[in-house]
Design a protein around this nucleic acid. Structure first.
Length: 318
DNA sequence: ACCCAGGACTGAT
DNA sequence: ATCAGTCATGGG
């Protein structure tokens, strides 16, 4: 960071919030696949954006410190969910040894409430991409279409800006087949065919319906947006990793268990804050190489008339 | 070379 | 209603 950096200007507001009783950990929170534009600098501080404001974030003792133009306590509190009753949330979790292991792996992992439009774009771009590639795409979109706030610091382009782009220029940002989706989505949002502001006022099921009218947004992506932008902790996105961990740990690896069964299992098993549980499981299964126990050897199919009774969803013992 | 990645969409049964 | 094929691109 140099002295010219707008983030470190003396007049940039600084806020310091107590994390007592909350326990937020920036490392696991910002690298858990919900946000894609945070970068950690050498001194352990994080550069990124909160509600379209560039800022610098770090933790110091029991305090969370943020510096950036236009930053207020309210904005930071909302973004990091410091107003949420985390103790109550965790108390609502089921007595589940796997979820306990996942929580123990990253106790300070917290859900963010990010800006809906950028979150929508990030997850339209997420399909069949690895997290590092989504970060790369986010960076390319900023550099190609955003406003230059400072050299090397570009805002994320709003919907009307992307709606004026061309699909070819979007493809240059390594978007592949997602370029068309993002282009159509930008026009749908810019024209208010779908209102991201109105979605915030709707019940979760109706909000999900509206989101799924957007090109490139299916059930999974819609749930990610509900969970990571709109703070709907009951949204439970099931990607390939979560599908894997649910099937392996709660259905004995039974490949015949259908996706819809996993959906309804998650709804009833993990409680009203199941989206939170989902993020612990996702982060754990991806980052801990020995998270999953070895698969049992495949049992050869007997030629018995299998009255296939799928497992009732009782967790295996870890 | 091969398989996989925080899937969605289309068209055929 | 379910189901396979297809869609680009880069990491390991």
């Amino acid at each position: 960071m140099t002295f010219e950096d707008p983030i470190s200007q003396p007049e940039s507001p600084q806020v310091s919030l107590s994390l007592f009783g909350h326990g937020l950990d920036l490392e696991s929170t910002l690298s858990s696949g919900q946000a894609f534009s945070w970068k950690r600098s050498d001194d352990g501080r994080w550069r990124g954006w909160i509600d379209r404001r560039p800022c610098l974030v770090w933790s110091q003792g029991d305090a969370l410190r943020v510096v950036g133009s236009g930053i207020t306590r309210e904005v930071v509190t909302h973004y990091f969910g410091l107003d949420l009753p985390v103790r109550e949330i965790f108390a609502s979790f089921p007595n589940d040894p796997w979820l306990e292991k996942a929580r123990a792996f990253a106790p300070g992992l917290r859900l963010l409430r990010q800006e809906p439009w950028e979150t929508l774009c990030n997850f339209i771009c997420s399909s069949l991409k690895q997290i590092v590639q989504i970060e790369q795409i986010n960076h390319e979109l900023r550099r190609a279409f955003g406003d230059k706030v400072w050299p090397g610091l570009h805002s994320f382009p709003d919907a009307s800006r992307l709606a004026l782009a061309t699909e070819t220029k979007l493809r240059a940002c390594r978007l592949g087949f997602r370029a068309r989706h993002l282009f159509v989505a930008a026009r749908q949002v810019a024209s208010s065919e779908v209102s991201l502001d109105r979605i915030a006022t709707l019940p979760t099921d109706e909000a999900r319906e509206q989101l799924m009218r957007i090109q490139g947004v299916g059930e999974k992506v819609a749930n990610c947006i509900l969970l990571f932008a709109y703070g709907r902790n009951e949204a439970f996105p099931i990607d390939v990793w979560v599908e894997r961990v649910l099937r392996r740990l709660y259905f004995h690896g039974n490949q015949r268990v259908k996706h819809e069964r996993l959906v309804s299992f998650a709804e009833t098993h993990f409680g009203p804050y199941r989206g939170y549980a989902q993020q612990f499981l996702f982060h754990w299964i991806r980052k801990d190489p020995k998270a999953l126990p070895p698969e049992k050897p495949a049992v050869p199919r007997t030629r018995k008339k299998t009255t296939t009774k799928p497992d009732a969803g009782t967790p295996e013992e870890p």
